[in-house]
Design a binder for these strands. Sequence first.
RNA 1: CGGAGAUUAGCGCAGUUGGUAGCGCGCUUGGUUCGGGACCAAGAGGUCGUGGGUUCAAAUCCCACAUCUCCGACCA
Length: 485
Amino acid sequence: MPKEDKNEQKALTKRSDDFSQWYQDVIVASDLAENAPVRGCMIIKPYGYALWENIQKEIDAILKDMGIENAYFPLLIPESYFKREADHVKGFSPELAVVTHGGGKKLEEPLVIRPTSETIIYDAFSRWIHSYRDLPFVVNQWANVVRWEMRPRLFLRTTEFLWQEGHTAHATAQDAKEYALMILDKVYKKFAQEYLAIPVFTGQKSESEKFAGALSTYCIEALMQDGKSLQMGTSHDLSDHFAKSFHVQYLDDSGERKFVHQTSWGVSTRLIGGIIMAHGDDKGLIFPPKIAPIKFVIIPICKNADEPAMSAAKEIFAIVSKIGKGKLDERLNLRAGEKFYEWEKKGVPVRIEIGPKDLEKKSCVIVRRDTGEKESCPIDAIVARIQEILDDIQKNLYARALEKRDASIKIADDWIGFTAGIEKGGYVFAYWCEEAKCEEEIKEKTKATSRCLPFDGKEEKGEHVCVHCKKPVANKKRWVFAKAY
RNA sequence: CGGAGAUUAGCGCAGUUGGUAGCGCGCUUGGUUCGGGACCAAGAGGUCGUGGGUUCAAAUCCCACAUCUCCGACCA
């Protein structure tokens, strides 16, 4: 068999040929996860879980810095709890998994496997909160949830997924709204941009896109390389909707009994799907250094374990490990080339090669994953240089993603411009009447939906009409539209 | 829930006049290789999705069922 054919077999599907297939190929080839025996469920493999642990660690640190504590609530929730909040039950009923039997007997009341924990947490809040002095009340939990989705996709929409969900109670509507916005900006936007190197729009969801039971939903939205948008996190202003259903009340400083105003907010393993699709290339994953499970890999070029290149590699590994978690690939049964491909697929930001030729010069070869650039670096300068390159990759990935995102933005003032813009992929900014029926029609015609009303949108003077139905709109800001995951 | 496809070794697959299963990758052992996906030799590995039926004989023909995957509508 000719060599080219063999490599062809090992190569990933190209993004330009079939993005969806590329996505699945990358996940399997990089050893992040695989499908489980049960439809829609995934096995997160050690490399994928290490990534999730890093995400978790950083977000958890940000939350803890804000004084937010973790707790854990049960997986099983009495079915009746879901029925207490009308919009909530309506929104979640179709996707609930329900336990009807336990210990060989039919249960008196079926138990819902949590799709989200508002109901059971606020039931606890109703017992825990008594006074305005208890507010704001804030708790976070890291947990798994189950939603019986019709169309699962690894990381993006799995039946069971991992997430954090924060829940708060406040004295006033204003406090709750401010808190929901603060979390979106100071936690989710910050994390997406500074750690994941993914630029996001922050904004408010339309009525039809908001969380079941919320007054308003705020979100971060990011562009994937196929031109679709991914909702990467949400923060909900729940107003007093759940407080009224679950009787979460407090006495204010004048002794008056009042309902609390609440928020809930979450990010999930979907973030991993976002990282893959925002940064990956035809060679595989590219991880931002700040959350990469392995920040650098050292590959000694040698035949036997007792060669100088191996001992030099070990020494370098020891000193570079000060920077963070790395990997020394000591395997002697694989050739260097195969190792290069493997770690590229896995998205390791920096590769260090050390062989006889380098040893003569007291240097080593450094290759960065984002650009593929190779350079020779003196061994005694290596720690500083690797750190510099990691920082630069982090910046470059963000800059690259931002450029793609901004290049995808189209301004549309009429229907022809709108459809042409959506057709090209990416974001279209347009005025919209905000009516559900109009949004449905837009979706039917173009497959695009409103992603959000961005917070940093500019107000434009003059009279504006809806890009689809041409009704006059009161809003002076444009909505962001895109096809979405 | 619609449409399509699949189910045979760990993975990817082949297997029609019906006769009890094979290839590639991977794995194990030995040897030669080793700066971008090496090669040779030997070896291990299978209730052919489930249940029925036809037949002397079924991976193969017939019936039923189950599950999974992909593409759409639904959603973090």
